[in-house]
Structure formats: C-alpha cells, structure tokens
Amino acid sequence: MSNKAVRYLWKKARALGWVALSFLIFLTVWGLASYFSNVNAALFPSPLGALHGFLEVLADGSLYGHIAASMFRFWSGFAVAVVLAVVSGAVFGWYVPLFRLANPVVQLLRPISPIAWMPFIVLMFGIGDMPAIVTIFIAAFFPVFLSAVSGVMNIPEIYLKVARNFGVGRFEIFWKIIFPAAFPQIMSGIHLALGSAWVFLVCGEMIGAQSGLGYLIIDARNNLRSDILVADITVIGLIGFLLDALLKFAEGRMLKRWGLEKE
C-alpha cells in the first residue's frame, strides 16, 4: 500500500475514533446515571433497556411501518414545499414590487410555529397523513421561499447583463440564468428547511396521526414503555442525521460544479 493510502486510512480511523469516543462517553454517563439513580427503570431506562426496546420493535416489524409512514409524509410535504417555494420565490424575487407587497404578511406568518395551525389543519384535513404533511409543508416552505427570493434578488448583475446582451428571452431567462444563478443560495435554504421540517414531522405525528415515528412516541408514553420511547427517539435522531448528510453531500456536489466549493 502506498504511503498516501496509509495516511488517508489513518486520518479516517482517527476521525472515526473521535465519533466512537464521543458515543462511548455519552453511553457511559447515561448508564452510570441510570444505575446510581433511584428512578424507576420504567421511567428512566438504561442504555441496555433501550436496546431491548429497540430490538423488540425491530423484531415485531412495527418499526418499519412507522418509519415508512413517516418517510412518506416527510417527502410528500417537503417536496411540495420545495417546488412551490422555489417557483414562487423566484417569481417574487424577480418582480420586486410583488415581493414588497407579500413580504409584510410573510414576515408575520414566518415566526408562527406550524404546530399553532394544528387545530385548523386537523379540522380541515382530519386525522391521518395530511396533518403531518401540512405541518412539514409549513415548516419547509418559508426558509426555501425566502432563500429563493434573496437568491434571485442577489444574482450578480453581470449574469443579467450577459443574458440581455445575447437576447435571452423573458421566460427563458428563468431556467437559463435565474434558477441556476440563485441555486447555491436556494440549496442552503433547502438544507435549513430539511432540518426544521424533520423536527416538525414528529410534532405533526404526535397530534394528528395513528402511525409514524411521532405517533410511536405517544404510543410508548401511553404504555409506559420508556425503553421504546428512547429507542424511537434514537431512530428519529439517526434518520435526521442521515437526511442531513444526504443533503450535505448533494450540496457539496453542486457547489463543486458551480465552482463555489467551501474549504
């Protein structure tokens, strides 16, 4: 093996070492806390107890169903939000008076937690997939919309000059210049939205659903199964982490292509 490959592997191993150490310390502290505290094991599970809970929902197959339900809701709400937010954000960013008109209302709606809409959502859409999807939609829409608006507003003047010079048409300019030029900023908005949408998926499912990872939390609580609760929380964190890593990867690829690589 070449020297370079050895150094590369060593670097990777060291990075992995930090990760392992981090979790080891975390699990140790958790284990010691549950061992030495007097709290009932049904209320505060040990790491091993949580593992048992995890294996149980894994073995009876219910976990897969919950993950599938959550993923379906997440991707439908998120995809619709991204598409609508990018398209409308591009239009509002391009026709500035339109944005000036919309912005006050947007700024008022934006800080409202999607959960606040929950009573309306449940009244309108009933119990099922829709409440979670709508919650995710609301959570994902605003970051993407605002990043698309500001991305389009901040397109370097020179691209627009070049487009005008070569006679790029009024509608052509959207997909030839505006979208690609604003895309790096839109992408960072999408990244931001992904995180908060995943957070609100759980909230949405805790209230308006009969399945999914968020519902599983309520279900575990009702059955006083804190071990399953902790296992579920871990799965939620893990999937959130994987989604973020996936998007980070996509974003990195794209920035590289645009020549905007972050060091």
Binding site: I158, Y159, V162, F166, V168, I177, A181, F183, R257
Partner: peptide, 26 residues
Amino acid sequence: NVTIFQNYGLLPWRNVLRNVELALES
C-alpha cells in the same frame, strides 16, 4: 453588439463550450 466585461461574465454552471454556445441560443 457584444460586451466583454472585466470579470468575464461566464456562467459557472455551464461548461466552456456551453458558455460559448450561449451567444447563439437565441
């Protein structure tokens, strides 16, 4: 009439050939 700018005005999301082709796309 075509303008050439100090900071080139190339589109970073297109390769060199597609940048040059932009001149005739309309």
